[in-house]
Design a protein around this nucleic acid. Structure first.
Lengths: 187, 187
DNA sequence: CCGGCCATGTAATGTGTTACATGATTTA
DNA sequence: TAAATCATGTAACACATTACATGGCCGG
């Protein structure tokens, strides 16, 4: 009967430890703020919220709208959060579809690989812009959580920057490959 | 009846496009070579191999041992691989347990966060060593796939290096936090 | 008054891991 | 000959997403 490690509970309790909110807002908050390293769907959030309420880890009080509830973390919930945060990290094995395609890129061709790099660059750039904006916002607000928020944002920024540098290097490598094989002899 | 995008098939056909091997070897190869961005379990590999054989995408011939088969990609299999490589990338949303814990690190305490950073550093260092070794090995062997292999290894190396720099910066931030709150007043 | 967002929830589906079961072969 | 590794496979389970279903509320 080993307790499963419900990582969803960490995200939910953690978000509610910052500020009480509805399930809907919870999902948006997770998407906006934790989006670069975490994600939760409604299909996870609502059942989790009900379960946590039954366990006394969150309280539900009626929201401004008739159909909405505002969920608030309880003292027990905070204790549980600390406990969950200390639990061993069960990382799912990595699965990076982009890398898989580039690794076998010889069967895909230089042009399509270049297109994948373009996509990657665009994604990294927009992510970087979003992270820098969030970074500035967190520094402005001066919350008690701020140093921890900034640490995670910082990794996102560094990773995005490294990705952009890598894209350039990868393009260069593909270009060299192209000029070496293409003008002389195909295949 | 939209065809699912069996990413396992890409990994299996891709690996077999480099070299024929048994299911067991396949798993080891994926773990060793693609390990920093991909993973497959036996529970995926063996059913996939049988399915691919029924579809004529791989051939099975008896291996050296009585109980083993060597799987070889067919011409159809190569065509299918090219097709699959062009299919849209369906990335699973990210879920980084380390980041989740650091983000809510205020409830975890500076010491435990430091311990998480230590773990991260150790992992990144060993990964970096492994990647550099693989990089050197690939350059030595001079395969036709080499440029593509090197591109993916390069991202791994850059990401690991960025992670190590981030660990230092994060420690610095936690230290500043510690000396600011601890000697003056707790909480 | 209609489109879009806020809000909650469930069922179906897919995907992938883990544990189990079995046995051959090599190595110490 | 015992332990480790090679080798294949299945069943149970866990986890999460997607799609669906429903309805209130607000702005143009």
């Amino acid at each position: 009967m080993a307790a499963p490690t419900p990582t969803t509970d960490i995200a939910v309790l953690g978000a509610l430890s910052v500020e009480p909110m509805s399930g809907y807002e919870l999902r948006n908050a997770i998407q906006d703020v934790l989006g670069h390293f975490w994600s939760e769907s409604f299909g996870q959030i609502y059942p989790a919220l009900n379960r946590l309420r039954e366990q006394g880890l969150v309280d539900a009080r009626p929201g401004e709208r008739a159909s909405s509830s505002v969920f608030e973390i309880t003292a027990q919930g905070r204790a549980r959060l600390s406990e969950l945060l200390s639990s061993p990290i069960r990382d799912r094995p990595p699965r990076n579809g982009l890398m898989l395609r580039l690794f076998f890129g010889r069967h895909l061709g230089v042009d399509q690989c270049m297109a994948l790099l373009d996509e990657t660059e665009a994604t990294a750039r927009s992510q970087l812009a979003h992270l820098r904006a969030t970074h500035a916002e967190v520094e402005r607000e001066d919350l008690p959580d701020a140093p921890y928020f900034l640490i995670t944002i910082d990794l996102g920024i560094r990773t995005s920057e490294a990705t952009l540098e890598w894209v350039d290097a990868a393009r260069e490598r593909l270009r060299r490959l192209d000029t070496m094989t293409s003008p002389l002899e195909q295949h």
